[in-house]
Computed example of a mutant assay.
Amino acid sequence: MLEKIVVTDAVRALRPDFAVLAMAARGLVNGPGDAESRVWLTAAALEADPDDAHVLAWREAYRAFGAKPNRTRPSVDALLRRADKLPSISRVVDAYNAVSVEYALPIGGEDLDHYAGAAVLTVADGTETFGEDEPPVAGEVVWRDDIGVTCRRWNWRQGVRTRITEDTRDALFLLERLEPYPLERLHAAGEALATRLRAIAPDVEIEGRLIT
């Protein structure tokens, strides 16, 4: 699955500095948020920096494809602004939200059992579907699979169809980076996420691929 992930030329032309660390985790045992996952969120909030240079880079990227980042914020921007009030959702979601806040990094999570084909980051042509929600507009950067869009405006809003739930066993995580974010920090975030996933499910199998 990881080898088939595609970042199209249209996206590369928009942001040649884009890179994504894709991680597949198989054999997860999710469940409601617990004391440990809430500690992850609390500790991450202490590290939150809404003015991190990476947040500014994502705002610029949104403006480049016509989005207004003050209206539809990049996911990491939205998380950092409410880092001290993040609700506990589930153990796995808490894990990647905590890493996102601590490392000022957009992270998406997808349920592979509800995914169809490969993940593709592309520019929408306006004909795509987004479940029952409002579809993307032409020119918008989106993640999609063979059925339709899985996340609108790069990492702004995830679709319901592939959302991670308490029943999720196999998941895809997308850790997205723009300059000046160091690749070393990106890999460190991936290790931090893997550590938390193993705390949740010691037998989980994790593999990763850096796409630059």
Results as ranks from 00 to 15, higher is better:
Leu112Thr: 09
Glu47Ser: 12
Val123Trp: 12
Asp167Leu: 09
Lys4Met: 04
Val149Ile: 13
Ala192Glu: 14
Glu102Pro: 02
Arg185Val: 14
Asn155Ser: 11
Leu210Val: 00
Ala199Phe: 02
Asp145Ile: 02
Leu183Cys: 14
Arg71Phe: 13
Arg161Gly: 00
Lys4Thr: 10
Val20Lys: 03
Glu60Cys: 02
Asn70Val: 07
Gly108Cys: 09
Val141Thr: 13
Phe18Gly: 12
Arg161Leu: 04
Leu197Glu: 04
Leu186Tyr: 07
Leu197Arg: 00
Asn155Met: 15
Val92Phe: 08
Glu191Gln: 04
Val20Tyr: 01
Arg198Met: 05
Leu210Ala: 03
Ala78Thr: 14
Leu41His: 11
Val160Ile: 03
Asp77Lys: 08
Asp84Lys: 15
Leu14Asp: 07
Val149Leu: 04
Asp203Met: 11
Asp17Glu: 13
Leu172Asp: 12
Thr212Pro: 02
Ala10Trp: 09
Pro182Arg: 10
Ala67Cys: 01
Asp17Gln: 05
Ala192Gln: 09
Thr122Cys: 06
Arg15Pro: 02
Ala10Ile: 01
Pro135Val: 09
Leu46Thr: 06
Ala188Trp: 03
Gly117Arg: 10
Arg59Gln: 07
Asp9Phe: 10
Ala189Glu: 09
Tyr181Val: 03
Gly159Glu: 07
Phe18Asn: 02
Gly208Thr: 12
Cys151Thr: 15
Ala10Asp: 14
Val93Ala: 13
Thr72His: 01
His54Asn: 14
Gly27His: 02
Arg196Ile: 05
Thr122Val: 06
Val142Trp: 08
Ala119Asp: 09
Glu140Ser: 12
Ala194His: 01
Ala124Pro: 10
Val7Trp: 04
Ala43Tyr: 11
Ile107Val: 05
Val141His: 12
Gly148Cys: 13
Glu128Pro: 14
Thr168Tyr: 10
Leu112Arg: 13
Ala194Lys: 02
Glu60His: 00
Asp17Cys: 02
Tyr103Cys: 11
Ser88Asn: 13
Ile5Tyr: 03
Ala171Ser: 04
Thr212His: 03
Arg38Met: 13
Val123Pro: 04
Arg12Pro: 15
Val39Met: 12
Pro16Ile: 04
Ala199Thr: 10
Pro135Tyr: 07
Leu121Met: 14
Ala25Gly: 04
Val76Ile: 15
Gly108Ser: 10
His54Gly: 15
Arg73Ser: 07
Leu28Glu: 03
Glu36Cys: 07
Gly126His: 02
Arg73Cys: 01
Val142Glu: 08
Glu166Tyr: 10
Phe130His: 08
Asp125Thr: 12
Val120Trp: 08
Glu128Gln: 09
Asp113Phe: 15
Asn70Ser: 14
Asn155Phe: 11
Thr162Gly: 14
Trp143Thr: 05
Gly117Tyr: 08
Ala116Ser: 13
Ser37His: 09
Arg209Phe: 00
Gly33Cys: 01
Gly27Ser: 06
Leu105Ala: 09
Glu36Lys: 15
Asp113Ile: 03
Ala24Gln: 13
Glu132Arg: 08
Met23Lys: 00
Val160Arg: 04
Ala116Met: 14
Tyr103Glu: 10
Glu110Asn: 08
Asp113Ser: 09
Leu172Ile: 11
